[in-house]
Amino acid sequence: MSTLEIKGLVASVAGKQILNGIDLTVRSGEVHAVMGPNGAGKSTLSAVVMGKPGYEVHAGQVLLDGVDLLGMPTWQRAQAGMHLVMQYPSEVPGVDLTEMLAEAYSARGRSTDGLAASVAAEAERIHFPSALLDRSLNVDLSGGEKKRNETLQLALLQPKFAILDELDSGLDIDALRDCSRRVEAATHDSQLGVLAITHYNRLLEELHPDHVHILVKGRIVASGGPDLADQLERDGYEAFTGDEVADEPTSSGSYDDLFAL
């Protein structure tokens, strides 16, 4: 049994403070959904926990079984058991999946014997076309193929905790179901703890969370059970903020700004 504790996390990017004190605790096998409108700090949260360059932490801790990840470089956070399924996985030309996983295994002291077979089996399970396995990472893959590939890596690397950063964006319903089922299976089989960051309810219909948190303006403003997502669906984010929140970048508010003289 492991615990991921985010405590009082304050962080900024490009001089702008985005996270204003986040507190969250996830335990092995639990699925937590963090929901928020655009600009709430969802992607910043995932970037800061994984140590993406360009983000500055001003206060707080991210403890994995009591050890603060914030003092570690990204690769050590990953080896400690943290994993990020990226919203926009980077293309890495000339490096294929198996080659990358072999290095990731070796770096963890894991044997690479049978790796190709494991990759093939996971690819089949997640419906990632085997013809794409020899391609360079994320190069010329569709949105759905990229997310299946991300989920495949999650399954093989077997972290203790995974952040799913907008796993549902750019996914058709079949891919969303396949990826969600694979993640859910990992929560049972290897007690994976999940922090699923999302804008929409859609993911939660496939990936059933134990806990739902509403993130607005860099703070968790409400936490509850799955019914909180239903309430959000019914009332919108405004109910949690006290003022109007842009649902989409092209809302009427931004048009007003655009034509303001």
Binding site: M50, K52, P53, P73, T74, W75, A78, Q79, H83, L84, M86, P89, S90, E91, V92, V95, M100, L101, E103, A104, A107, R108, L137, Q153, L157
Partner: peptide, 13 residues
């Protein structure tokens, strides 16, 4: 971005 992607999989710099 490429470097971060690989490092986020536990691969040393």
């Amino acid at each position: 971005e490429q470097r971060f992607y690989l490092e986020s999989r536990g691969i040393p710099p």
